[in-house]
Design a protein around this nucleic acid. Structure first.
Lengths: 256, 256
DNA sequence: ACACTTAGTGTCAATTACACACTTCAAAAC
DNA sequence: GTTTTGAAGTGTGTAATTGACACTAAGTGT
């Protein structure tokens, strides 16, 4: 039945790493530098962090390794969302130049499995060296042209995030341990790209049981200090809470 | 940065093909026969249809090819849902025997991208020869031990289907062109594994606008004949309808 | 003490969800 | 041709949820 292809593809993982700071969603991107054959100056461009999957590791492990090498963090939210395997996804000149630079066959096909990661960006210290001289948090509205098909992958991740956030309480992964109700609302508004009513938001969040109020309040702010909350990680992860459903405008629900 | 693994993995696609008949959800599985070194009789076992991805095709094309070779059908609902890449996913003796039979290195790693397909099983005529001497529709409750990690993949597909059905009107893909309201309700009840109220179901389905009543009714049934309906494929695919949201027991909705 | 800024609070009307039982229609049985 | 059988089809009242909406509270800075 199956005829073996002439050359096996390479398989990589790429991580779309989301962070949230200064009221914007951001992606953690790495900078790559490649020689430009014409100008003889170096070109640089951004790409998603990723790597080939190694012999002895599974896909989740590979993605976790990439994330750890770049950020030093482990145990963070990381979820596979789509594989990308267009035979022509490596065709830009600079991508080929980069592959040559890392001594890989630039004609080899690479199939990649994309993951999305949600991290509290304040907690990250970029690890020197491993992937790139430089890594930056770029607002999603300002993402330039990336290497390979990484723009497509990033857009896919954003759509996946928007869907997931409507079904599971995962947005908390983007906030620090303690956060205010306004922080949380701003985050949701940013991800969903629409305004939410303050009072209704509070009511539903509190009724849902996914967060707990702390006795502690803000200090040193020049206005009424906000109360801090924490995410009920244990309760949610142990199935104490079901499906979270963020109803979309124009939607309708089926069945009792 | 990245060290090339000693041997590139193979990449395949596997299709979890759902059908619905006699009030049960079924999977289309193929039978594989391999020599048993000890008994010298042939062993056989079931597996998901799949194949290696070819050089010139993308992942969706590979999955569509597998589906077409097996069923002769094109243009049917087919959606990627997860990649599986455990290094030990090929370890059972019969899987290795089968790989040897098709002249592939039984030690090579295979990473697979899994798709789920929804088809009207009445419409399928299994194509002879291509994949297997035999293909069968087995009720999901009666799936035996499959090759590779195909039990895991099937379970993943079922969970994905259950989630998708709550968000998008795709269950129709499992029914014939014309169907009765009871057919539809039974299908939903089967997928969701819970009973639904007849009157509430009808009301919401009709209000949702995803189906249209035909003037035609059943003939020759020994009870009150049911009306036929069709799925509004065009309306739904052109974005005329939004998010479909099937609220789960114990769920809660967030935000206005 | 006053200005400034963000936090925090309650109600009402409209919509949606859910529970629930009888009548209608056609064929088959007698 | 009357009766039996079995699934189709229909409506209402109650409870819960949604969504719109504006003022007071609590700090800091001047």
């Amino acid at each position: 039945m199956s005829v073996s292809p002439s050359l096996n593809p390479h398989v990589s993982v790429d991580c779309v790493i989301f962070g949230f700071s200064k009221e914007t969603l951001r992606l953690l991107l790495i900078k790559r530098t490649v020689p430009n054959a014409i100008t003889e100056l170096d070109d640089s461009y951004y790409a998603l962090p990723g790597d080939l999957v190694r012999d002895n590791e599974n896909l989740d492990e590979a993605a976790a390794r990439v994330l750890k090498e770049l950020t030093g963090l482990t145990g963070i939210f990381l979820q596979q969302f789509q594989a990308f395997g267009d035979p022509l996804r490596i065709s830009k000149a600079k991508d080929r130049a980069w592959l040559q630079g890392v001594r890989q066959d630039p004609d080899a096909r690479v199939i990649t499995v994309a993951y999305m990661a949600l991290i509290d960006s304040n907690q990250v210290q970029i690890q020197p060296g491993s992937f790139s001289k430089e890594a930056v948090w770029l607002p999603i509205a300002e993402i330039p042209e990336l290497g390979f098909d990484h723009n497509d992958i990033s857009e896919g991740a954003l759509l996946a995030l928007r869907e997931k956030v409507q079904i599971q309480p995962i947005a908390f992964e983007l906030l620090p341990e303690k956060f205010t109700m306004s922080d949380l609302q701003t985050l949701y508004e940013t991800i969903l790209e629409r305004d939410l009513d303050k009072r209704n938001f509070r009511r539903k969040m509190l009724n849902s049981g996914v967060i707990t109020a702390l006795p502690e309040k803000q200090h040193g702010v020049s206005n009424k200090p906000a109360r801090y909350y924490v995410f009920n990680r244990n309760l949610v992860e142990n199935g104490g809470l079901g499906f979270v459903n963020l109803k979309m405008e124009g939607s309708f629900t089926l069945f009792s």
